[in-house]
Amino acid sequence: MKAIVMTAVGDSGVLALQEIAEPQISHATDIKVRLYAAGVNPVDTKIRRNGLLYPNALLPAVLGFDGAGEVVAVGPNADQFKVGDKVWFCHGGLGREQGNYAEYTVLDQRWACRMPADLSYVEAAAAPLVLITAFGALFARGGLQAGQTVLVQAGAGGVGHVAVQLAKLAGARVITTVSSAEKAEFVKSLGADEAIIYSQTDVADAVSQLTSQQGADLVFDTIGGDTFKASIPLTAYYGRLVTLLEPKAVDLGEARVRNLLLGFELMLTPMLRDLPAARDRYVAILKQCAKFIDAGKLSIHVSHVLPLAQASTAHDLLEAGHTTGKVVLSI
């Protein structure tokens, strides 16, 4: 089968279209899926630049956590799906199991879900990692409640644009930061109450005015670095600040004075540390989000669709920054 193979650690040029062996069912509860689309996420580019995440994992490897496709075979004890079912999932891509930049994959039925009826394969492949990440950050880590105010940093991005929608579905007031007027209109179309264009407005002043000098009950930082540092004084006293990235050399004195709860959201942990119960919760999140999608309450925005052979271009787009929504490979 055709697959994009990471041949070495480096820039996007290390991704090569190759013919590799087609995966086969090896466990009784496995399903084999013909992939029609694979989501591309920033973590894919980090793995390509820095190396595979599993200890002792060897190159070459197939990247890609998010996939969507059609079940073409099932193991003898696989009773949750039948041939022809459309599924979406977040599985593989860390260097141990095969990722989804490929024509076929095999995974245990436990980690797959039926696709929302109203999504295309491209939209479905764009969604799992960002939905699981946003849901975990807002609710499991952030404890977001109806009536509270949340600030989503970079609300037009892959994680940000679904976080805006999930927060609104929970009854929260949503403030978000964006880089342009076009993106401000985009996030408002998703339900954001306020959009701060950070290139034109001082974010701290804007948040202070919008929250009557109180700050946001929850700040969700999807960017890290200086944005995490700047998010501390934007968070209300006794509030919560959740980030996707590891803070480096940050003075937490103000966070301590504010009595903030600091949280980290890394949705890869159940795969990295083999935590089946945690992965079960992730599957439950996808099932809940599928209900929202089928009810017309949640949408997935895909800004770029590229053929599988252009995976390196997809990585370049993400690394250039400022993409709206998601980038997907069509297979």
Rank of each mutant, 00 (worst) to 15 (best):
L306N: 08
T324D: 04
V74I: 08
E185V: 05
G239V: 03
A236K: 15
E194G: 00
F81L: 00
L260T: 13
A37E: 14
L35K: 06
S12L: 07
L107N: 08
H304N: 11
L234W: 10
G191M: 02
A311Q: 10
Q148T: 12
G99M: 01
T269L: 14
N100P: 07
A255L: 05
P42D: 09
A134Q: 06
N100C: 14
I197F: 00
L15S: 14
L15A: 10
V207M: 02
T177L: 12
G157A: 04
V162D: 06
V87M: 02
T324V: 13
Q209I: 02
L17M: 11
K291R: 15
V62C: 13
T133E: 04
Y198R: 01
V5Q: 15
I25C: 12
L17C: 08
T235I: 06
V106E: 11
V43T: 14
C90A: 03
L131E: 04
L261N: 14
G84H: 00
V164K: 08
K86Q: 03
R141M: 14
R256P: 06
Q165T: 10
E22K: 15
A124T: 04
K82E: 01
L151Q: 02
A278Y: 03
L308V: 03
P116N: 06
M267S: 09
C289Y: 09
L244K: 12
E70I: 10
A249Y: 02
N77M: 01
L190G: 05
K287F: 02
D11E: 13
A206T: 01
G99D: 03
K183D: 01
F228D: 07
A3K: 11
V62A: 10
A3S: 15
A154I: 07
R34N: 05
V43S: 14
T243K: 13
A126S: 05
G253C: 07
F220A: 09
V283L: 11
A314V: 03
R141H: 11
I175E: 02
A167R: 03
G325C: 08
Q310L: 01
I20S: 06
N100I: 04
Y121L: 12
A38G: 13
D280V: 00
Y121C: 08
A172T: 05
T235W: 04
A236G: 06
V250S: 13
G51R: 12
R256T: 15
K287Y: 01
N77E: 03
S299K: 14
L266I: 12
A181I: 07
R281D: 15
S199E: 09
W111A: 09
Q24S: 12
V242T: 13
L266T: 13
Q98K: 10
Y238V: 09
V83Q: 00
D85E: 00
V203L: 03
G142K: 03
V74G: 01
W111R: 11
L169N: 06
R279S: 12
Y121M: 14
A117Q: 10
L275W: 07
G95P: 01
G39F: 14
P55W: 05
V162R: 10
Q288T: 12
G13D: 08
M267Y: 12
G263T: 08
